[in-house]
C-alpha cells in the first residue's frame, strides 16, 4: 500500500513538473490556485465538519489585498501575498468567532451571510475598484529581483511551490495531534468536550487556518491573472469551491485537487456556452448529491478496496 502511494505521489510530481511543457501554463496555474482553495475548504468540512458557504470572502479579499499592495502601493509580490494571507486570517478570525456559535446548517447560512456582507463592502469600498475591480496588476520580480515572473513558465514553478507549501501544511495539520482532536470533535462534539477539549478553540483555529490558505490561493490567483474582481468574492464563488471539493470527494486528500482541475477545465472548454455553464454546474451538484456523495476519489477508492478484497 505504501509502495503504491509512493508511486502515485512520484507520478503526480513528475506530471506537475513537466506539465507546463504540454499544457497552457496559465490554465495550470489557475487550476492550482483553485486546487489550494478547494483543499483549504476541504480542511474545514472534511476534517472539522464545518461547512462554510462563504469561503469566497477569504479568496476574494486575498486577491484584492494582493492587487492593492502590489499595484496601488507598489510593493513587491511577497508583501502582497503576505498581506492577502494576513487579511484573510483576520477576516477568518472575526467571522469565525461569531459563526462557530451556531452549528450545522446555521453555520453555513451565517458564513454565507457574512460573505455577502463582504461582497457589498467590496462593491462600495474605494480600494477594490468597485465594478471594474483591480486590473493590470504588475508582475514584479520576486525575492528582490532574483526571480523574474513575467514569463509564464517561471511563474508556474513559483505557483507550484506555493501550492505544495499549502498542500503540505494542510496534510501536516490533519495528521498532527491537533488534527486528531479536530476529527474527534467532528465525530462527537459532546464526547470531545467531556474529555476536556475546548471544541470551540479547535474549530476556530481550523477556521482561521482554512481562511488564511484560501486567502493565499486568492492572492496567488491575482498574481497569475493580474486582476482581482467582484466575481471572486461573490456567493457564486463560494458555491464553486464547494462543488470542487464535492466532485473530487469530501474528506479525501487528493479529491479537492482533482475536483478543482475538472471544474476549471470545464469552465475553460465550456466558456462559449455563457450562462449555460451555471446550469451545468447546478446539474452536477444535483447528480452528485443524489448519486455520488463520496465524489470521484471516494468512489474510486471504494472500488479499488472492493476489488482488492475480492481477489
Amino acid at each position: 500500500m505504501t509502495n503504491q502511494r509512493f508511486l502515485l505521489a512520484a507520478g503526480l510530481i513528475v506530471l506537475a513538473l513537466i506539465g507546463p511543457f504540454f499544457v497552457y501554463p496559465v490554465f495550470l496555474m489557475t487550476a492550482l490556485c483553485f486546487a489550494l482553495f478547494a483543499c483549504a475548504f476541504n480542511l474545514l468540512l472534511g476534517y472539522a465538519g464545518l461547512m462554510s458557504f462563504g469561503h469566497a470572502m477569504f479568496f476574494g479579499m486575498g486577491g484584492y489585498l494582493f492587487g492593492y499592495v502590489v499595484k496601488t502601493v507598489g510593493l513587491p509580490p511577497e508583501v502582497g501575498l503576505l498581506a492577502g494571507v494576513g487579511t484573510a486570517a483576520l477576516l477568518g478570525l472575526a467571522t469565525g468567532v461569531l459563526a462557530i456559535r451556531r452549528q450545522g446548517i446555521y453555520f453555513a447560512m451565517i458564513t454565507l451571510a457574512f460573505a455577502q456582507m463582504v461582497y457589498f463592502i467590496c462593491v462600495q469600498a474605494p480600494f477594490t475598484g468597485g465594478e471594474d475591480g483591480l486590473q493590470g496588476i504588475p508582475r514584479r520580480p520576486l525575492l528582490g529581483g532574483l526571480i523574474q515572473i513575467t514569463d509564464d513558465r517561471t511563474l508556474y514553478y513559483v505557483v507550484l511551490a506555493i501550492f505544495l507549501f499549502g498542500f503540505a501544511a494542510i496534510n501536516r495539520f490533519i495528521n498532527s495531534p491537533f488534527g486528531q482532536v479536530l476529527k474527534a470533535i467532528r465525530d462527537n462534539e459532546q464526547r470531545a468536550l467531556s474529555l476536556g477539549y475546548e471544541a470551540d478553540r479547535y474549530k476556530l483555529l481550523a477556521f482561521v487556518l482554512s481562511a488564511s490558505l484560501a486567502g493565499l490561493a486568492g492572492a496567488t490567483k491575482a498574481m497569475v491573472l493580474q486582476f482581482a474582481t467582484l466575481t471572486d468574492v461573490s456567493a457564486g464563488m463560494s458555491g464553486e469551491v464547494v462543488l470542487m471539493a464535492l466532485v473530487g470527494g469530501l474528506g479525501t486528500i487528493l479529491g479537492p485537487v482533482l475536483g478543482a482541475f475538472i471544474i476549471v477545465a470545464m469552465q475553460n472548454y465550456l466558456a462559449s456556452f455563457g450562462e449555460f455553464v451555471l446550469v451545468i454546474q447546478g446539474a452536477i451538484f444535483v447528480v452528485i448529491v443524489m448519486a455520488f456523495r463520496k465524489g470521484l476519489v471516494g468512489e474510486i477508492g471504494d472500488w479499488w478496496r472492493g476489488r482488492r478484497k475480492a481477489s
Binding site: 461547512m51 458557504f53 450545522g104 446548517i105 453555513a108 458555491g239 464547494v242 464535492l246 455563457g274 450562462e275 449555460f276 455553464v277 451555471l278 446550469v279 454546474q281 447546478g282 446539474a283 452536477i284 451538484f285 444535483v286 448529491v289 443524489m290 456523495r293
Partner: peptide, 30 residues
Amino acid sequence: LLKRIYHLDHLYGFLLTFGLALVIEGLFQW
C-alpha cells in the same frame, strides 16, 4: 429529489437545493 435525502445530513439538502437554484436561475437567464 428531496424525498430521497431526508435521512442524510442537512448539508446535502442545502447543496441539492443550491444546485437546483443554479439550474432554474441559469435556464431563465439563458
